[in-house]
Design a protein around this nucleic acid. Structure first.
Lengths: 221, 221
DNA sequence: TGGCTTCTGTCAGCTGGCTGACAGTCGAGC
DNA sequence: GCTCGACTGTCAGCCAGCTGACAGAAGCCA
């Protein structure tokens, strides 16, 4: 796992940075040859009716993992180079930009672990990270109003990007799907915070955090 | 893992029974001696500020895993004898009835896996099950109205209990916390279904499913 | 059996956020 | 520079579900 691993909900936990640091890149070096595939922006890498589970390594690009129902979509998170992903029965995986992936049938995991048991610890850690991310999302959906979700996300990104100026990934609708809300509601929330002096919009997809304390108070809800 | 494993959200996926069947009880036989502890009904087994992660085996009784915030509580699920659980940073674990547990520090997992790599596969499967359960809950919270959540739960229990007469676990408030709603809303939902002829209440905590097709239609939302 | 506590059903008022709609802005391509 | 499509902001109406409250039923214990 490289430090390039960046997952919105994981970073929200505040322990993301420390956790990332614990990961050993030896895991990557020990992975056997897998199936390499290239995807263009917008391509579906994996859909819910895929019956063959695979384990994926993102080599290049950025992918989004999401759930959908009727006309609604929920983003579980996104992964960047160095991230591992084990397919979910009901999740979609789509490329947000041109992406290269190396993958293995899940059945190979058994032999991979038998050959190098350290792989098991790393794989457990990865699945544990996904579970942690899922827990964050559950808490958002169950307990936090949209303002709090947004504030948490922005503070997390501030930590990850090491700057008060946040570069957002994708446009409003994508971020709304990550925060479990609608585009309109997110837009309203952002613009209310701008009006209240917590944020400044430098340009589309770029926000400046002005009042960290106020954002932290909002995020505590 | 024994067939006694029963987890509400897992069973909701409809693949729960099959998944249970794949598990090998050899996993249990290979587990080393751990720390045995006994808990009374209502005892907290594990709280969010516990910094030492452990891996738990439920030997007897029933435990509930939940998240809480302000005055709200969300049940992630419950576990019965034969279930394994790896502690979450932010989850509470509480005994719903007198319970016996065997546990190990999470650090022991590494040596356990080195001694018997099959343990890794079983542990991966367990964490994967938890992730699957979390995904079910996310879908409930993000996409499904309360009626649909209740219908899904009842149909799942019907499959697990192999009967049209469902024994509920705990009283209304507990089930409401599992379905991510309030006691009042759940009570209203149940009684509307009773009035509409889908359910019959035989006694507290015991419901008879009368119209499976209507419940299935509701659950599809 | 009686008293007390817990559980359940029901109600009314409220609200966070959704949804559809529309106007203005921005970016990409010619 | 112009056009068109995508993105963004804003608005109004609506509603699923929450919350607090209260009454009646059920369960438990002395």
């Amino acid at each position: 796992m490289s430090d390039a691993t960046r997952h919105p909900h994981a970073a929200m936990s505040g322990s993301g940075a420390g956790h990332t640091g614990e990961r050993s890149a030896d895991w990557l070096a020990q992975l056997p040859e897998g199936q390499i595939r290239q995807f263009d922006e917008g391509d579906v890498i994996c859909r819910p009716d895929n019956h063959q589970n695979r384990i994926f390594l993102i080599q290049q690009g950025c992918v989004r993992i999401c759930l959908s129902a009727e006309h609604k979509e929920l983003t579980l998170g996104w992964l960047r180079p160095g991230s591992i992903y084990v397919t979910h029965t009901r999740a979609w995986v789509e490329a947000l930009e041109p992406t290269r992936i190396c993958s293995w049938p899940i059945e190979r995991l058994t032999s991979m672990i038998a050959e190098a048991p350290e792989l098991a610890i790393a794989a457990m850690r990865e699945v544990g990270m996904m579970l942690h991310q899922a827990t964050n999302l559950i808490e958002d959906l169950a307990f936090r109003p949209v303002d709090a979700r947004l504030a948490r996300y922005l503070l997390l990104e501030r930590g990850t990007q090491n700057s008060d100026t946040i570069q957002l990934t994708g446009h409003t609708e994508l971020l709304a799907s990550l925060l479990g809300t609608s585009r309109q509601t997110l837009s309203t929330s952002i613009n209310r915070m701008i009006k209240d002096g917590l944020l400044n919009k430098l340009e589309r997809q770029q926000l400046q955090l002005l009042d960290i304390a106020a954002l932290e108070a909002l995020a505590q809800v």
